[in-house]
Design a protein around this nucleic acid. Structure first.
Lengths: 224, 224
DNA sequence: CAGAAAGTCAACATTGTGTTCTATATCATT
DNA sequence: AATGATATAGAACACAATGTTGACTTTCTG
């Protein structure tokens, strides 16, 4: 499910970290100490910078903290290693992503796709540096995977109904899964192309483009 | 372009490796020494096995060679580190991919998409273990990136002409790029879904599915 | 068979890791 | 502004993997 650790006796320590901080919503909301925010911000900036020139595996805690100009031990107060750090950064993005989607959810779980997409692309633009890195060659496949998982639950039902309303077919659930996978990865490709061009096109343009391509992909099943 | 190295004085050594072996087509064809093949095969098997339970960054040369039951020093005769090894394995796959595509290329650079796709999915099925790993959460974003690059050159022209034959539009090259990115990543998602289901559907079915979705995506531009 | 090439084995200095301790700086609060 | 609480700095530590080397043995090729 989540990531494994090579070192044996250190999972406990990590669990403690996750329990003490972060996991409790209330604690999250009560803003962290200013020093903590500063530290995490500096580390995130350093990581983002390093990820532009090298793979994450080649990034050591040592050089990361040196670039951020802080003590190496400080890093371990918040993260287990560099990969854990990236994962936690992603956690934050997925939290916001979830908020954005939920805001457009109706009570019957259906979603107003188009306006939601517009908000989504605004969010991506705001976080374009991180998105660019995560979808770059040096990026993180796990990010794509998690994106897949999150969106799946949200949209599968809505789209499923929508597509089957168009034309009743006897196609299996599995074929719908293929379309779904195609579309989600496709959107990732779309976003990747966009952020790698520094988000030159407007968010509205992109939302329209995405909307069109999603509908096409989803409705293909009914029209085959 | 390619990967960087943290360690300063070791690029030279690696260059030597790449020059001595691999890079020269003729040498590649003249089968390597049986021992070399055996060594590389054992290492590849061990890597594939390890990648199913852990991230590549957590795999050490030590455990890899222990699993393959060989001396650690032997590893360094062929690879710089574990990532370099994965990259070289990918090199081999891209070579074969190139052959498959080229075999379906007409003299005007156009491509018979459908039969090519069928061959492609056969190839993927043959290499499903590695594909599954490369597209998994533990996978390699650089693989996707390289796939993008390789296919881009091959297909952009063909599809471009095809789409503009359908309906003449004034849309810019950039928008076509977005469709292209969507489709290539989408195919990756499709393949990922397929191999993660142990390739249950037939290669022909998948080729048809892919063909449909590709055409839909490409032709969207003309029909917006 | 003989020479070449590949692999084994043991040893080495080097580097990053993860943790711990004390001391200092910064924070939130009254 | 003084307070106690908390975060960070700084240095030290044992430990593990790295990358390389040299002498040896095995395996391949012709």
């Amino acid at each position: 499910m989540t990531r494994y650790s090579t070192k044996k006796g250190k999972l406990l320590k990590r669990k403690n970290i996750q329990k003490d901080r972060g996991m409790d919503m209330n604690e999250q909301e009560k803003k962290e100490d200013r020093r903590v925010r500063r530290t995490k911000k500096l580390l995130t900036q350093a990581l983002t910078q390093l990820l532009q020139t090298k793979q994450i595996n080649e990034i050591t805690v040592k050089e990361l903290t040196e670039l951020a100009d802080m003590n190496r031990g400080t890093f371990y107060l918040y993260y287990k290693d560099v990969f854990d750090m990236l994962e936690k950064i992603e956690d934050g993005m997925f939290e916001r992503l979830d908020q954005i989607i939920s805001a457009h959810e109706n009570e019957d779980m259906s979603v107003q796709t188009r306006p939601m997409l517009e908000d989504l692309f605004v969010f991506i633009e705001e976080n374009q540096e991180m998105c660019r890195v995560l979808l770059s060659p040096h990026g993180d496949m796990n990010f794509l995977h998690r994106l897949n998982e999150v969106l799946r639950d949200k949209f599968l039902k809505a789209w499923h109904n929508q597509a089957f309303h168009q034309k009743e077919t006897g196609k299996a659930e599995t074929e719908f899964d293929y379309h779904y996978s195609f579309v989600v990865f496709g959107c990732a490709g779309l976003i990747r192309a966009w952020v790698s061009r520094a988000c030159r096109e407007s968010t509205k343009e992109m939302a329209q483009l995405a909307d069109t391509m999603i509908r096409c992909g989803v409705l293909t099943q009914a029209s085959v």
